[in-house]
Design a protein around this nucleic acid. Structure first.
Lengths: 133, 133
DNA sequence: TAGATTATTAGAATCATTCTAAACTAAAAA
DNA sequence: TTTTTAGTTTAGAATGATTCTAATAATCTA
């Protein structure tokens, strides 16, 4: 049984052709930032029959199972990330690409006071990049 | 001439009823975080005739003129902010409200290396809040 | 293999935002 | 002032990302 099927089995998800293809893609690289649009393009290229609805269903499911992390960049679109650590991103709008910023690459010497009655749920940091000159 | 009309004149925008109402709202408070939906609700309440398209047209125009700052929070919607300083936000999803974090409330002792050939365009920091307990 | 359960899919629905093009209004020119 | 012109507002259509629906198909369990 290949790794993708293993992973799916562990998460009690049936190893359909579509799911295996998605998970294969995800585990084939170290770090992946994907959007539904990018992923369907890639899979269609590989001659996998899959619909957009299935892409969304599965990316969301994998995020629910903790295999991917789901987040948004500006207002653009939904991104999924195989990097499950706490981390932040550069966003290169030129290439529509994300670059990880590991947690240890940023540190705060001063943090804002959390409003009364609230606690911090998550922090999103996105550093938008543009080309030099 | 009232302040709203002054501001519009300076920006070479005609002081229509709709524009004056929007700018009046904006300058009536110290710090305002608005979305199109919140603003139209407020103005309709005040019996101002205005369409959603006009709200968007004008908020975008005011952002272009530097009177408002436009940004996004997660994937939700487009927000406009009267605070023109560099700053960040808490987001209270419970109330769908933003709270400013002034730049001097955060400081970095370590910042990530910007990728080659790129420069920083802007930094978005959003601290998502949830209720304590 | 049958029956139960879970997946996939095309296409419709949704929601925030933008676009279109017609009707209107303010400012400038005559 | 009227006329002209340039800028505005608007209803409703269009857009684009995502989700929903409900019919069909694939997988699993016994």
């Amino acid at each position: 049984m290949n790794d993708a099927k293993e992973i799916l089995k562990k998460s009690k998800l049936r190893p359909t052709i579509q799911r295996v293809a998605i998970v294969d893609y995800i585990i084939g690289k170290h770090k992946v930032h994907i959007t539904a649009a990018k992923l369907i393009k890639y899979l269609k290229n590989k001659k996998i029959n899959i619909s957009l609805a299935t892409i969304y269903n599965n990316l969301n499911e994998l995020a629910d199972k903790g295999i991917l992390k789901k987040f948004y960049v500006n207002n653009d679109k939904m991104w999924f990330d195989t990097n499950l650590q706490d981390h932040y991103h550069f966003y290169d709008s030129e290439k529509d690409e994300l670059i990880d910023i590991n947690k240890n690459e940023i540190s705060f010497s001063k943090s804002p006071k959390i409003p009364n009655g609230k606690i911090k749920e998550s922090i999103n940091i996105i550093i938008n990049l543009k080309n030099k000159n």
